[in-house]
């Protein structure tokens, strides 16, 4: 069975799209550098395509057990002060962020 060996090259537009999805702004210069880096990295990553994995079940969790259940009990108290203490914008009741525009 022939193995696929291709490289999906990542163009500048894709880099910008990923940066948008990641919510990380990048300037053009950085984008170009990233385009170069990412292409090198993915070219290397794509050696995985030499491997036929059609019949392999993906590994979903390394610990070979299942989810442990917790009782439905309220244990957390009101810790508003702790929760808001590290917040960059001071407000004793709420987190404050710049206006959301829909």
């Amino acid at each position: 069975m022939p193995l696929i060996n291709y490289h999906m090259s990542i163009d500048l537009k894709t880099v910008k799209h990923i940066s948008k999805l990641s919510r990380i702004s990048i300037d053009d210069q950085k984008a170009k550098k990233l385009e170069k880096d990412l292409n090198a990295i993915f070219k290397w990553i794509e050696q995985l395509n030499q491997l036929n994995t059609d019949k392999v079940e993906p590994l979903t969790s390394i610990a070979e057990t299942t989810l442990r259940f917790r009782k439905d009990q309220i244990e957390s108290k009101n810790i508003r002060e702790d929760i808001l203490k590290n917040s960059p914008k001071d407000n004793k009741d709420y987190f404050v962020v710049p206006k959301v525009v829909e």
Binding site: R70, D72, Q73, I74, E75, S76, N78, I79, R80, I83, L84, D93, Y94, F95
Partner: peptide, 20 residues
């Protein structure tokens, strides 16, 4: 009584950020 993945209360209408 408590949330899906944490032990804080689910009560409606409490003071803001007191069930976090």
């Amino acid at each position: 009584e408590s949330k899906l993945f944490s032990t804080s209360a689910t009560k409606f209408g409490s003071e803001p950020n007191t069930q976090v």
